[in-house]
Design a protein around this nucleic acid. Structure first.
Length: 475
RNA sequence: GCCGACGUAGCUCAAUGGUGGAGCAGGGCUUUCAUAAGGCCAAGGUUACAGGUUCGACUCCUGUCGUCGGUACCA
């Protein structure tokens, strides 16, 4: 990333975090990795514009990105920077060597139309009537020596891995886009640049005049971070990844180049690639020129971490582009969080606090409620397996409706019921509330903690302690 | 241009070829334990449009219109 991540870039952090927390809750050992790609032309250019060194620039961006861990309450286990010479570079060198050994790296003259304004080679769509669209200048024919990666050799294999489900690409529509590219035939890709053109990067092993092109460098982060090239035991423990979460803009690189590199290096492929869409703001694309960029911190300061997580998981469709709208946010917040979960919490605990002692006796459990909780649990597993964060959440919310209806039916505030009946009602409500608190954990970690620590199921009697309103209503 | 996806209630989205559903918003009724919260009920649709296949089409086929992607060195 060449600038500070906005809410569009942070969606995947939240999604990946839910997957990691959910897997941990199911007893799996998890390594949740993220990081920042810090090399490449864009960084070099941006640094020049800001009149600071590339190192200073990436330090700044990386620090801000790392702060999201706290802002968004993320649970990553590792954060890799591609400028990290100790942890990342050995993996890149090893990968390069493997590709060379497989004879998939070769030197070739690249001939292209170069625009000195853009400081890059132009493609057909950058050129109109022989001139660069941006600079209205005729590009010059430039030749340079590059190392190339034999991507063309791997199209067929990648296709079969996708079609057989060995590497699942979700959603299918994105898989199809790549498959049609493969059918047209993949071309070899340039994997290095002369250092005069691009100095900010990792030098090609054994050839000091060339710098490794950003994709070859950056994609390797997934394995360098977990030990490839420096701690093989650790690497084998974690690779292959169960899932990689990525944005649609980088789908092509992850679904074509990355698997090709892995196959060439004789490494297993990630099992799933989940590709999310983009976020619009009030129906418009995020763009600096429109000035509609929203930073995650702005939202969190205003609404809190869990509500922000909730909105993006519940309101944004996991596979298509989504929209952030202030109005929708407030609607969601009030209906689901304040009047839904927050009110249910206050309602149940308020009732419970009026009773001196609620026996902690599971024989009081209503079968229908118990079964409903179990069903929701299973459905969440299923929904998250398919990355349907929104549907998983509405499963949990259906339990709140069950609870609210149950309160209305049983009227546990009425003394006419007698103590025994009311105790049973409260027992069921507290079990239900606690279950909701647990289930909501991967999505809303803070809220989960607040709920579960309000209900203590340890002794002979249930102890309750009502905290402040979870989600004060917004006007 | 070529390839592909999509178009369903005001909004966000569901519906193996077999009576088009849910949540939210808006409307009515109702409860009082709770954050002027909860519950219940009704309403809301020519499934973009026009044809076709079929006993039967949101679903399959063709065309039109509209929206959005992909079209390789843009993190």
């Amino acid at each position: 990333m060449s600038s500070v991540p906005h809410i569009g870039n942070t969606l995947e952090f939240i999604q990946a975090d839910v997957l990691a927390r959910h897997a941990r809750a199911n007893g799996k050992e998890v390594f949740f990795l993220t990081g920042s790609d810090e090399h490449g032309t864009k960084i070099q250019k941006k640094a020049l514009e800001e009149k600071i060194s590339p190192k200073k620039l990436v330090d700044k961006i990386s620090k801000i990105t790392k702060d999201f861990k706290k802002t968004l309450n993320l649970s990553w286990d590792g954060f890799i920077r591609t400028t990290d010479k100790k942890r990342h570079w050995p993996g890149v060198f090893k990968m390069w060597k493997q590709l060379e050994e497989a004879k998939d790296i070769y030197k070739r003259t690249y001939r292209g139309l170069y625009c000195s304004g853009c400081e890059t080679f132009l493609t057909d769509k950058d050129i109109e009537e022989g001139k660069c669209i941006i600079h209205q200048k005729e590009p010059e024919l430039v030749e340079e020596e590059n190392y190339f990666f034999r991507l063309s050799a791997y199209g067929k294999t990648i296709k079969s891995k996708i079609e057989s489900g060995e590497m699942k690409v979700i959603p299918q529509s994105k898989a199809n886009e790549i498959l049609s590219l493969i059918d047209k035939g993949l071309e070899d890709v340039s994997f290095s640049r002369p250092k005069e053109k691009l100095s900010w990067g990792i030098r090609v092993p054994g050839d000091d005049s060339q710098v490794i092109y950003v994709w070859a460098d950056a994609l390797t982060n997934y394995i360098s971070a977990i030990g490839y090239g420096r701690d093989e035991k650790e690497f084998e423990k974690w690779w292959p990844a169960d899932v990689q979460v990525l944005g649609k803009d980088v789908a092509k690189f992850h679904v074509a180049i990355w698997p090709a590199m892995l196959i060439s290096a004789k490494l297993p492929l990630p099992q799933k690639l989940f590709i999310h869409g983009f976020i619009n703001i009030e129906g418009q694309k995020i763009s600096k020129s429109l000035g509609n960029v929203i930073l995650p911190n702005d939202l969190v300061d205003k609404f809190g971490t869990d509500p922000v997580r909730y909105y993006f998981l519940r309101e944004i469709s996991p596979f298509d582009d989504g929209d952030y709208s202030q109005k929708r946010f407030v609607e969601r917040y009030n209906s689901d969080l304040a009047k839904g979960l927050g009110n249910f919490y206050a309602r149940v605990l308020g009732l419970a606090e009026k009773f001196k002692k609620i026996p902690n006796n599971f024989s009081l459990m209503e079968l229908s409620i118990e079964q409903r909780i179990k069903a929701v649990q299973q459905n969440i597993d299923k929904q998250l397996d398919g990355f349907m964060f929104n549907d998983a959440l509405s499963e949990i919310w259906s339990l709140i409706s069950v609870g609210d209806s149950y309160v209305n039916e049983q009227k546990p505030w009425s003394e006419e019921n007698g103590n025994i009946k009311n105790e049973k009602t409260l027992f069921n409500l507290l079990i239900l509330l606690n279950a909701i608190g647990v289930l909501v954990g991967p999505f809303l970690p803070d809220t989960s903690k607040k709920i579960t620590s309000s209900v203590s199921l340890k002794g002979k009697f249930i102890k309750v302690k009502k905290a402040a309103n979870l989600f004060p209503r917004l006007e």
